[in-house]
Amino acid sequence: MDATTSMYVAQGIHGLAYGMVLFLIASGLNVIFGMMGILNLAHGAFFMLSAYFCYSVLNLTGNFWLALLLAPLFTAFFGIILERFFLRKMHAMGHMGELIMTLGVSLVILAAVKIFWGTENLPVKMPPILEGMVSLGGLEYPVYRLFIIGLAGVVLAIMTLLLYKTRLGKIVRAAVSDREMVNALGINIPVVFMVVFGVGTWMAGVAGVVIAPILTVFPGLADQVGMDAFLVVITGGFGSLLGAVIVSIIFGLLSSYGVQFLSQLAPVVMVGFMALVLAIRPSGLFGVKE
């Protein structure tokens, strides 16, 4: 590859990698909204919390893979507690109740993070095996970013299998369309929802761990990425896994090629695309009309 081509290819892979990070966060949000109808403003805070857990596990054990396993689980645990003891009561109040509850929770998480970990910028080192570059037909590309793409792919595959090939997935999908009926069949809907919420926050947790080595773990992390994830979900359509994947990748590519060609307007390109989609389809690219 000559230099120019390899630059364009590299930008493409950057876009894909960033898109996949967005997807990991957004899909969790999407699962929670699509399945349960809950707007979880605390999603970004959970993502940040997981990055902090990752830092602590890494500090104690020195093992990144253990952190990748444990931190999302801890995060999911807190997610389940939130659902079981706080959010469940909000359902009757609609989005306003959820908004205020989850906003409150995200503030509490932010405060807790500062109390337990302080305000400094904490480092998370990537495992040595993922350091360095790999040659892709003449293009030197960092291994870690390829790892992100791969991991997100695995998570996507698991999600698809879980939703479309298992009994749980069937129940969840059925519960979304007709909750009463599923309940009448003797299935414990609250437990199913708790599991779904857990899975959603787990995905935020995975994203938090994955992104920690390329970013700084600090109390502003939630704001840094949270809003973009929300926009992915809105643009992709609520409840659509496919929408989340496609829009994440488009956002990723727009942001990297945007920097390449229209540097000054890079962020505008992304929101411009969003506005265009929403102007044509207000419920999102793959959203179901209400």
Binding site: G37, L39, H95, M227, V271, A275, L278, G287, E290
Partner: peptide, 26 residues
């Protein structure tokens, strides 16, 4: 916005407010 209501209305506004925010910054 007269075409949508409920959640879509809420989220559409979140999105457009974000659009304005990014424009104001850029």
């Amino acid at each position: 916005v007269v075409r949508v209501s409920g959640t879509a209305f809420a989220m559409l506004h979140l999105a457009f407010a974000q659009l304005m925010y990014v424009l104001a910054l850029k």
